[in-house]
Design a binder for these strands. Structure first.
Length: 373
DNA sequence: CGGTCGACCTGT
DNA sequence: ACAGGTCGACCG
């Protein structure tokens, strides 16, 4: 506290000195003590203060570049010091998740709206030991090539542990998409965190984090997600006579370490209260949300895909993209090698792909041994 | 779904 | 010869 008082005195003194030609020190001190809300209120017609404000801002006041930026299907606030987003917000619906936009047509690039001197570059990430992790996922934007392409702007990217990105975080994103099957609206706010190290033998807590590349992109220690769901009518409520069916509104907040997390850890291990997340992040999340809100995990379980389910899903994606019969068979044998039996969906996918590849092989090499059908 | 990397082609 | 971009193989 002593330090703060000292600092206050210094600042006050400095301002008084600088503003000696107008106003009184008292006025300046009063301004300094004003609520942030009040300070930013323009149109105060109250003469003296206004003059002081204009003088202080004679050559402009510092700009953070943290203003909200809107894209086709996400919005974010950017951190010019860390070269990452502070938060990224999205709205998901079942309908919006349909489409055939493909990440193969996208590429990571600097956000053209971010000044170059505050922007990360691909070079910062490549070979850094960290992957480029989406905050607004590409998979939430299959509806439009444009919106998917925009999620590849580095303003939406943070340095993320490979295994975390492809694994636990991936499954969390899938869970968010899955929620649109049970809720009409899903809102997600995601972002990086740099949290103090827990230990330190002498009891001190320290914030430290790696930075990568020539632009010194900050590697977050943790990632957060705040998931809000809504149904205008409760789909689980089969009581037709319930006229007062209030809209269901439930929220789950999660803080996930930026390192590998295995299948043995349930999502609920990483759940925190909304106020807890807000204190850690310094963000007021969903400020328009009536509180307290129902717990998403009590309402919906917060169950991520298990190992078997996830492996089946991945194999399905690989099978769909198989370019040769040998690869196709390899994907299936890898599955049985893990002692997982394909389900009906995967079997259909497999047979369909096999037919397609055989057809193609025959067309390109009609005299091959597979010919004479 | 989430990623990386290297071979290869292109332009100056 | 070398920077830069595309494409396909690869991994969890």
């Amino acid at each position: 506290m002593a330090a703060r008082v000292k600092l206050f005195g210094f600042v006050g003194g400095f301002v008084c000195g600088a503003a000696v030609s107008t106003g009184s020190c008292l006025t300046v001190l009063k301004l300094y003590r004003l609520d942030p809300e009040e300070q930013s209120t323009p149109g105060r017609e109250d003469g003296a203060d206004n003059e002081v404000q204009q003088l202080i801002g004679r050559f402009g006041l510092p700009e953070t570049g943290a203003e909200v930026r809107y894209y086709a299907n996400h919005a974010l606030s950017y951190d010019q010091a860390r070269k990452t987003p502070r938060w990224v917000a999205e709205h998901l619906t079942n309908h919006k998740l349909r489409g055939k936009a493909n990440r193969k047509h996208c590429k990571f690039r600097a956000d053209p709206a971010i000044p170059a001197c505050f922007s990360a570059g691909n070079e910062d990430y490549l070979g850094s030991g960290w992957s480029r992790g989406h905050m607004a996922p590409a998979g939430d934007n299959k509806q439009s090539e444009q919106s998917m392409a925009e999620t590849f702007y580095l303003s939406n990217i943070i340095p993320q542990n490979y295994e975390n990105n492809a694994g636990f975080w991936n499954r969390l994103e899938m869970y968010c998409r899955e929620l649109t099957q049970r809720f009409q609206d899903v809102w997600v706010v995601s972002g990086p965190l740099v949290l103090p190290r827990e230990e330190e033998e002498d009891g001190r807590k320290m914030v430290s984090y790696q930075v990568i590349g020539k632009d010194a992109v900050a590697v977050p220690t943790h990632l957060f997600k705040a998931v809000l769901v809504q149904n205008s009518t409760d789909v689980n409520n089969d009581n037709d006579n319930d006229q007062s069916a209030a809209p269901v509104l439930a929220l789950g907040a999660f803080v996930v370490p930026n390192r590998p997390i295995g299948f043995e850890r349930p999502l609920t291990d990483f759940q925190v209260s909304l106020p807890e997340l807000e204190r850690a992040s310094g963000l007021r999340l969903y400020p328009g949300l009536p509180r307290p809100t129902a717990d998403l995990c009590e309402l919906d379980g917060c169950q991520l895909m298990g190992f078997k389910e996830f492996t089946l899903y991945l194999t399905g994606r690989k099978v769909s993209g198989a370019r040769s019969l040998v690869k196709l068979e390899q994907f299936m044998s890898e599955l049985s090698q893990q002692e997982i039996q394909p389900d009906d969906y995967l079997n259909d996918l497999y047979l369909q792909k096999k037919k397609e590849l055989l057809l193609r092989a025959n067309r390109e090499q009609p005299e091959g041994k597979t010919g004479a059908g």
